[in-house]
């Protein structure tokens, strides 16, 4: 193994040296109304957006869950959501897998922010909201603070100092799971959620 490493690096170092070119100027776009752009982009890829407030989001969520005939919801306890059948993802996946794969109808997670340009949520799974929470249940409800919407990816990488402390897993999520592998026809929920609902807290 180390021999392969040494050989590969030696071949690369033996190649002609060229001066690394500078990065030319290009800047990603910014927007007067970031929420408006975010909403337009994520709705264009089948995401659903509801603008709510700190006071109204829990009853609003309840209404959505009822409309979608959701029974069991996965959510971190500290979110204090108003629903009868809420479970927490508080055991290792090895013990929780069966329930996760088929026993939960919806999950609610927080977000680290969003990107207006592409209509993307920034999701950083952690101890309370593990990686699979936002992936396996058919409906993903994401809570987003309107103030946390950045113009573009470069801006949020910089503003939140990602490079200095990358988490185990960081995700950009732009809409529900989809595929166009069969005759370029869009189909949702191929592996991940069929529905993505964003509650924007203003």
């Amino acid at each position: 193994m180390s021999e392969a490493r040494a050989n590969i690096l030696a071949r690369l170092r033996a190649a002609p040296q060229v001066q690394p070119p500078e990065r030319p100027y290009w800047q990603a776009p910014s927007f007067n109304d970031r929420l408006d752009r975010f909403r337009m982009m994520i709705e264009a890829v089948h995401g659903e957006v509801h603008v709510v407030t700190e006071q109204t989001w829990r009853p609003h969520l309840r209404k959505i869950l009822a409309e979608k005939n959701v029974a069991r919801v996965l959510a971190a306890p500290h979110l204090g959501i108003d629903w009868d059948d809420v479970v927490a993802y508080d055991a290792p996946v090895e013990d929780f897998k069966d329930q996760l794969v088929s026993g939960i109808d919806a999950c609610v997670t927080t977000t680290r922010g969003a990107i207006a340009e592409t209509g993307s949520l920034v999701v950083v799974p952690d101890v309370d909201e593990p990686r699979l929470a936002s992936l396996l249940p058919p409906i993903h409800v994401a809570l987003l603070k309107a103030d946390d919407i950045a113009d573009n990816l470069a801006q949020i990488i910089e503003a939140q100092g990602w490079a200095a402390a990358m988490p185990t897993n960081l995700l950009l999520i732009s809409g529900p799971s989809k595929t166009a592998d069969i005759e370029q026809t869009l189909a949702y929920g191929v592996h991940g959620p069929k529905e993505l609902i964003v509650l924007v807290l203003q």
């Binding site: 185990t168 950009l172 809409g175």
Partner: peptide, 14 residues
């Protein structure tokens, strides 16, 4: 597409 549905940045195991 403006972006893919998922962009995974994987930095470490569990």
């Amino acid at each position: 597409q403006a972006i893919t549905t998922y962009v995974n940045m994987i930095t470490s195991p569990r």
